[in-house]
């Protein structure tokens, strides 16, 4: 079995008496989409925050590409190649689409201290940003202000900004949130293609998308992983059916 790209080992996080993550162990391997599902309040956002560096776990470790990154912040993990998308779009609304994508390139190339050159001039930065936009289908909206984009286009831009990092792994927090059937299908196709570039840890409520995309699924309930397995295994898991899926399957 190949070494995991990203792994959590026994991570635990409490907020007062509430244990939001309770001895969670999971990993993400090359070429796979590993979905994390669970009801609201299961601790998915806390898990993502610990994987991406927004929160430090009380116990346990996070490893990325063989390095212990438990005490590293979000920016340091991003520089190692861990790209994330946000549940609620975190985009610079006053900026254009190309500016948002270029920001990712500035971060990826470590060039934020350049003062004399133009950020949007023709060159490697812009090319990389435009390629990422083309990849998600936003190439015709480069000059549009993000505030004027539709919700679906903002979700696409989230992915494009993550792509500019040329990441080694993606952590995606509900990329289908708020999308209609067509948008969701489009996003599913996109994620399906992206898995070949970097594995995806996918937190998602849209079960159709999860079942269509995931190689493995982990089910999180009350901060604990109650099951990990393939789509068929999870569909058939009695505890998961009782706790989360109900009669949906």
């Amino acid at each position: 079995m190949p070494e995991p790209i990203l792994s959590a080992r026994g991570i635990t996080k409490s907020f007062g008496a509430l244990k939001a993550s309770d001895d969670i162990t999971l990993d993400l391997r090359a070429g796979e989409i590993h979905a994390v599902i669970g009801p609201n309040g299961a601790g998915k956002s806390t898990l993502i925050a610990q994987l991406c560096g927004g929160l430090a776990p009380d116990a346990g470790t996070v490893q990325f590409l063989g390095h212990d990154v438990t005490r590293e912040g979000t920016a340091a993990r991003a520089r190692r190649g861990l790209a994330r998308t946000f549940q609620i779009s975190a985009l610079a609304m006053e900026h254009s689409v190309i500016q948002n994508a270029t920001l990712g390139c500035v971060g990826a190339t470590g060039t934020p201290w350049r003062i004399v050159s133009r950020a949007l001039r023709r060159g490697p930065l812009r090319d990389r940003a435009e390629q990422a936009l083309a990849r998600v289908g936003l190439q015709d909206h480069a000059a549009t202000r993000v505030a004027d984009l539709s919700h679906g286009q903002r979700r696409q831009l989230e992915v494009a900004v993550a792509l500019t990092l040329q990441p080694k792994a993606f952590v995606m927090d509900e990329p289908m949130a708020g999308l209609g059937a067509e948008g969701s299908a489009q996003m599913t196709r996109l994620l399906h293609d992206l898995r070949h570039e970097a594995p995806i840890l996918l937190v998602e409520h849209d079960m159709d998308a999860v079942f269509a995309l995931a190689d493995r699924i982990s089910v999180l309930v009350y901060g604990q992983v109650i099951a990990t397995g393939t789509v068929d295994e999870i569909r058939a898991h009695p505890e998961v059916r009782a706790a989360y899926l109900g009669d949906e399957t």
Binding site: T74, A75, A90, G107
Partner: peptide, 18 residues
């Protein structure tokens, strides 16, 4: 660009490694 983004969405700026 990075500074103006840091004003608007610091979490995004961190997420791209800055």
């Amino acid at each position: 660009l990075a500074l103006d983004a840091a004003r608007q969405v610091p979490e995004r700026v961190r997420a791209v490694g800055l």
